[in-house]
Write a protein that binds this DNA or RNA. Structure first.
Length: 873
DNA sequence: CATCTGGTTATTTTT
DNA sequence: TAACCAGATG
């Protein structure tokens, strides 16, 4: 029940209710709300501590989302705020959806009354639309994604005669993104940093990029927050309006926030009664270095008073003058609750500031820090292994995860000769799990880099094992979706030059670079959008008849579609546009492997439009909320990167590729040094803690990198695992198709050949195990967690190689979409049959071996495939 | 204007 | 190795 009590008494400064208040609240709570029952004491405290800033350090699997949603339910049922007075932000749409869903379940009714529950960007965008004119935009501005961004920058570089080979637009986009992440407008970029691009032109380009955005009536993702911040600073009245509205603020995954998000939150979380916020400081030239070293005294004092002596991120944080300046503002803060886990901060490379969470109690004075350390997910061994690994990090707040679950199985570490054997071994292990009756949905393979996936995909295709790739290109990033959207954008806003340019010649209509260049000249001369330029040019004879005719058709088409817009439902309009423009036809005629999928995506796009009122509404939200919840209905193994595994859990988790250079990634080590190493370690921690029952780590001695076989050494992280909770197993899958009889012939034998050159503890451990708990190879790094001799060697019973054909085959999915359904029929193929495979395209059968076909694909070459995955072409 | 070819370059990803 | 892009060619 939501009572609409006037929550007048809480608008003030933090008042941590002493015992009496707490008990009263508890007494009230124990009567009605059943949502509080079942919470452990820490969770309950996190839910019930409503006043003042609260940081909830929620370790993996400790019920973070539950606390967040219960807290909202609690606020509502206590009558402390109405739904529209609660701001709760997440990073991903998925997380936002999940919260809405669970809140709906908890409150027993839909959560339509929570208008301010969403991602940073969608809420930032919403605020920006409401005050667009203060940012020189119209409220119907377009949100540009990375692709548009880069194309726009490319144009700017060309206009400035900058060699975009030496200074790629992508790089500039990255820089600008970084600046925006740090809350820096063009004038605030430290001059030294702006100069690194194109011999000093970086800063200027950023400025002209922003100008172009205004002309195009567009904003990029960064602007959705940065422009808010600027508006808040320049218009205290606007800021106060939001400060007054939001009685409570909740933030999910706080460890992932960047500086801009921090500033945004900080501004909104100040009590509205506080003095108007300082107008933008004239600190344009303040340099990072000066702030770090000899900045103004408050800043320095603040830095030195930092509660956690964190050598890693300290320098990072201090280099940012705006941030430090902001941190000085110690205005009263209202009720903000941030939930996060510093041990799961894995997006530093994307601008996330671990420091935000490490310094929370400093930024929000009087903050209450609550640790959730009881893990409800994993077994004892898994938790111990993960905890032990992460304990090697220095820059952390420190938590001790505990579980009341039994120890379960030890985490296994398996060495393989090469990555192919690794894939085979994992494939066999999966089949064994499957035979035991476990669901494939409860199995995940988590890799460090996406190129590792290929080997598994190939293996699963041959085995006929259904799998699903999670992550990868987002739906709205796909070329066909973006093309379709571009058509709609041009209809909606004729001034959208980027969209127009994208589709003038898609499908091919003989309007190439020359024509487009001409239109550009025209447009610039007359200061009109490209579309209008096209309309004008068609009337002249500047173009060759062929191009002129095509262009005239394009203009006429758009005019017609715009007219139809008034009388046609937007979904129908989209279908009409796709058909009449020849776009659908273009893909229908395309014979490549993914054409069918693209057409499917277009259908999906039209379907997804139904959720919106009209074209305008659809376009406003599409770039912000368009993601696809991977249809997880089918039982399939999940294949994804460690990064995209965050927040998920599985009974069985495979962690292949634990080798130096790959994991931890050499590049991260080179670029970020020790901070990078710690982030990689957190990644390992995230990986292990995804497992409920079994975590299985693998490393290979040889791996193909950029096409060449490279010998690798086991990851240092292996050495950081606690011996008592880990078991080294022998590699399985030493043979597969060949069926050499000797299954599991350990290839550690082969490793010995390389042995003498390696002395890392991890390798030593592997060696030690191989020698049956015996002799430890001496090495310079010995003594580092060296307990190898306590390891037990196990030889689990071997996989049954004979059961191939009896293996059940299910539908296979790629990127969450169904790739192929088992035909169910006894499809018989003959030699040289022309066939089609969803992943490999067209080809012909060259060999038949039961239900296993060898097919020579036109593009992909020779592959072995199970017959149900191909169809007659 | 479209297609072909060779040179280049290789994380992690959300919005 | 393979995928992508820019410039040269047809």
């Amino acid at each position: 029940m939501i009572r609409m009590t006037e929550p007048s008494k809480i608008t003030g400064v933090p008042d941590h209710q002493p015992a009496a208040g707490g008990i009263a609240a508890r007494a009230r709570a124990s009567v009605g709300p059943k949502y509080l029952s079942g919470l452990n004491p820490e969770q309950r405290e996190a839910v019930e501590t409503l006043d003042g800033p609260v940081l909830v350090l929620a370790g993996a699997g400790t019920g973070k989302t539950r606390v967040l949603t219960t807290r909202i339910a609690h606020i509502l049922s206590q009558g402390r705020a109405r739904p529209a007075e609660i701001l709760s932000v997440t990073f991903t749409n998925k997380a936002a959806r999940e919260m809405k869903h669970r809140l709906g379940q908890m409150l027993g009714h839909a959560v339509e009354g929570m208008p301010w529950l969403g991602t940073f960007h969608s809420i930032g965008g919403r605020i920006l639309r409401a005050h667009a004119e203060l940012a020189q935009l119209k409220s119907n501005f377009t949100v540009l994604d990375t692709d548009d961004q880069v194309r726009l920058l490319k144009q700017l570089l060309q206009a400035d005669n900058i060699d975009d080979k030496r200074w790629p637009a992508r790089m500039l986009a990255g820089l600008i993104d970084g600046w925006k992440n740090r809350g820096l407008t063009p004038s605030q970029v430290p001059s030294g940093e702006g100069a690194v691009f194109a011999n000093g032109k970086g800063g200027k380009l950023y400025a002209s990029y922003q100008e172009r955005l205004k002309i195009l009536n567009a904003a990029d993702f960064g602007d959705l927050l940065l422009e808010d911040i600027r508006i808040f600073r320049e218009h205290p009245d606007v800021l106060r309006q939001y400060q007054q509205r939001f009685k409570f603020i909740l933030v999910d995954e706080y460890q992932d926030t960047n500086v801009a998000q921090y500033l945004w939150l900080r501004l909104l979380s100040q009590a509205p009664s506080s003095a108007p916020f300082a107008s933008p400081r004239a600190r344009g030239e303040t340099d990072a270095q000066s702030a770090a070293g000899e900045g103004d005294s408050p800043s320095t004092a603040l830095v030195e008073a930092a509660p956690h002596p964190d050598p890693l991120s300290a320098s990072e944080a201090r280099r940012d003058p705006v941030k430090d300046g902001e941190r000085e503002q110690k205005a009263p803060v209202k009720n903000i609750c941030c939930v996060g886990d510093d041990d799961q901060s894995i997006y530093g490379w994307r601008g996330a500031e671990v420091d935000n969470i490490l310094r929370f109690d400093h930024d929000f004075p009087g903050a209450k820090v609550i640790r959730l350390e009881r893990n409800y997910r994993s077994t004892g061994h898994i938790l111990a292994a993960a905890s032990h690994l992460i304990a090697h990090n220095e820059g952390r707040l420190g938590k001790t995860l505990r579980t009341e679950d039994h120890d379960g199985e030890k985490v296994t570490v398996t060495g393989s000769w090469d990555s192919e054997e690794e894939a085979r071994g994992i494939g066999e292990e999966i089949e064994q799990i499957q035979r035991k009756g476990d669901k494939l949905n409860e199995i995940a393979i988590l890799v460090r880099a996406s190129y590792q996936m290929r080997e598994f995909e190939d293996r699963f295709v041959t085995l006929g094992l259904p799998y699903r790739v999670i992550g990868g290109p987002r739906f709205y990033e796909r070329a066909e979706v973006r093309d379709a959207l571009a058509y709609l954008r041009v209809i909606n806003s004729p001034a959208d030059d980027l969209a127009f340019e994208r589709i003038v010649n898609t499908p091919k209509r003989g309007l190439g670079d020359a024509t487009v260049q001409m239109l550009h000249d025209h447009a610039r001369k007359r200061r009109i959008p490209l579309f209008e330029a096209a309309r004008a040019v068609v009337e002249t004879d500047e173009l060759k008849p062929k191009a002129r005719g095509s262009l005239r058709d394009v203009v006429a088409n758009f005019d017609r579609w715009r007219a139809q817009r008034e009388v046609t439902a937007h979904t129908d309009l989209c279908q009409i546009v796709l058909d009449e423009s020849g776009y659908t036809e273009m893909w229908q005629k395309d014979r490549s492997a993914d054409a069918a999928g693209r057409l499917e995506n277009l259908k999906e796009l039209v379907r997804s439009m139904e959720e919106f009122e009209n074209l305008q509404g659809f376009l406003e939200h599409i770039s912000l909320v368009m993601d696809r919840d991977s249809g997880a209905d089918e039982d399939a193994v999940s294949l994804m990167t460690l990064h995209s595994a965050k927040g998920l859990e599985f009974d069985n988790v495979f962690l292949p590729g634990w080798e130096e250079g790959l994991f931890p990634s050499q590049r991260t080590l080179d670029e970020q040094g020790r901070a990078g190493l710690e982030e990689e370690r957190r990644l390992g921690h995230v990986g292990i803690t995804r497992a409920r029952r079994r975590a299985m780590i693998y490393f290979a001695t040889n791996r193909r990198i950029h096409g060449t076989w490279t010998t690798t050494i086991p990851s240092r992280f292996l050495d950081e695992l606690p011996a008592a909770n880990v078991e080294i197993t022998e590699s399985k899958g030493g043979s597969a198709w060949g069926g050499t009889g000797g299954y599991g012939a350990s290839r550690f034998d082969d490793m010995e050949a390389f042995g003498s050159t390696y002395s890392t503890p991890g390798w030593q451990r592997a060696q030690a195990n191989r020698n049956r708990g015996g002799g430890r190879t001496g090495g310079e790094s010995g003594g580092f967690e060296e307990q190898a001799s306590t390891f037990s060697s196990s030889s689990s019973s071997g996989p049954d190689f004979g059961s191939f054909a009896s293996r059940r085959r299910g539908p296979m999915t790629i990127e969450g979409e169904l790739v192929a359904k088992s035909t169910g029929t006894t499809s018989e193929f003959s030699l040289s049959d022309r066939v089609f495979h969803q992943k490999f395209g067209y080809g012909h059968v060259t060999r038949i071996d039961g239900n296993k076909l060898t097919i020579h694909f036109d593009k992909a070459g020779e592959k072995k495939v199970v017959d149900s995955f191909v169809q007659r072409a």
